[in-house]
Amino acid sequence: MTDTKLAPYGILVLRLVTGALFLTHGLTKLFVFTPAGTMGFFQSLGLPGWLGVVTMIAEIVGGLALIAGIYARIVSFGLTFILLGAAFTAHWANGFSFANQGGGWEYPMMWAAVQFALALLGDGAYALRPTRK
């Protein structure tokens, strides 16, 4: 049974945590790895370099949107695909455990499941711009 009184606050917690993580990852790509370095990494995976910049922007903008609660369901659904891409391109060959060198695929797959669950659950409490139903 779902506790409809507290569920919106549980969703808020997930939204804030995942939003902060996406923001951190996107800003790391921007300021530490730099856009050029991020593009180079994506190219080393056999992907187009521009996809690295798109991913970086999606992580920053998506993270801020989740924190603020702006169309969180739609944003969560979209970010699910970023995480699936990370799991299958950057981490799949490293095996299951994220403790493996280069990180395994189970961590981004878990976050993909969390993002998809958030897309299903809704915007949660204190969303600035809830997704219309």
Rank of each mutant, 00 (worst) to 15 (best):
I60R: 02
G69F: 07
G63W: 04
F41T: 03
G49I: 01
T89K: 05
A86T: 13
M56V: 05
A36I: 14
F41M: 12
V32F: 13
G63S: 12
L79H: 00
G37F: 12
G63L: 11
R73L: 06
E59I: 02
G49Y: 01
M56F: 07
F31M: 14
V32R: 15
V53S: 10
L83K: 04
A87I: 11
F77Q: 02
T89E: 06
W50I: 14
M56K: 04
F31W: 13
P35H: 12
M39A: 15
V32Q: 15
I57F: 15
L84V: 15
G40C: 06
V54P: 10
G40Q: 07
L84D: 07
E59A: 03
T34Y: 15
T34N: 15
G49R: 01
P35R: 13
W50L: 11
M39L: 12
L84G: 05
L45R: 11
G49W: 07
A72Q: 01
I70K: 10
T34Q: 15
T38M: 00
M39K: 12
E59H: 11
P48M: 10
L83F: 12
G85H: 04
G40H: 01
F77R: 03
P35C: 12
L51G: 11
E59N: 09
I57G: 09
F33N: 11
G85Q: 09
A65H: 05
P48C: 12
V75D: 01
T38Q: 06
R73M: 03
A87F: 04
L84I: 15
